[in-house]
Amino acid sequence: MCEKLNASLDFLRDKYGCPAGMIVAGSEGFELALSNGKKVVLLPWRVERRFVELKKIVDGKTLEDVSTFRFAHFTAGGDPVKLAAKELDLAVFLANSPVRQIFAVRNGDSACNILASLENGMSASVECGTRLPAGTEAMDRHEIIARRGVASDRVVDTQVPQSSIYTWTDSGLRTYTDVDTELFGLTNEQVWVVRAAFAVLMKPALAEEWNHAAAAVRKYATAIVASDADNKPVIF
C-alpha cells in the first residue's frame, strides 16, 4: 500500500518541487517521515475536498453564528471510539476551537454516541457505529447548523451518499465517485492520505499543528471511554 502511495506522492513532489518525505504506516494510521527524521501524523480528513469546502463556508461567513455540528459515521468494523474521536477533530478543525467537554455513551465495540461542547460555545454531536456488514462502504454525514444557514455534505431529503456515476450492467450496479484527476486511479481513501502528506510537505507549519491535533484525538478517545464508564461528562 505505502509503495503505491509514495509513488503518487513522488509524482506530486516532482511536479510541484517540494521537499522529500515518505508515507509510512503508523500506530494510528499513516504518518509522513520527513528527511530530518521527524514524523508527522497525517490527518487526511483535514484535506478531504468536501471538508475543505465546508471549512471555507464557515470561515468565509457563508454560515453565520454556527450553533451545532451534527456528524455521523458508520463503518464495517473498526473501533467506534477512535472513529468518534476523529470526527470530533473534524469539528474542532471546522470550528477553530478546542473541545471543552465530552459526554459519551457506548454500546460495546458497536456504537458510540457523543455530545461535545467547544470552547467557543458551539455544540457537536457525533454518532458512530461499526456494524455495517463486511465489504460495505462507510456511510457518513456532516451537517453544520448556524443562525444563518445550514451546510452539509449530503443532499437534502436523502439518507445515503450519492455517487458521480451509476452503471447497470450484467455485473449489476456499480458506482464511481472520482475526486482527484492528478491522482486518478487511487481510491478516495488513498487520495486523501497522499494529499495530506503533500499538504505537510508544501506547508511545513502543519507538521506541529497536526501532531498536536493527533495528540488531542488520543485525548478525546480516552475521555470518551472514561465518560461512558463513569456516566459523567469529561471536562478539559
Binding site: T68, L115, I145
Partner: peptide, 28 residues
C-alpha cells in the same frame, strides 16, 4: 446538551441533543 439558539429572540431552547441508555443497554 443545549446549544446556542438559532433564534436570538426566543426565551426557550431551540437547539439541543440528548444521549443516554435504555434499561436493556441500548444506547441512543
Amino acid at each position: 446538551q443545549v446549544a446556542p439558539n438559532l433564534r436570538k429572540e426566543l426565551e426557550v431552547e431551540d437547539m439541543l441533543m440528548v444521549v443516554g441508555k435504555l434499561q436493556d443497554g441500548t444506547a441512543f
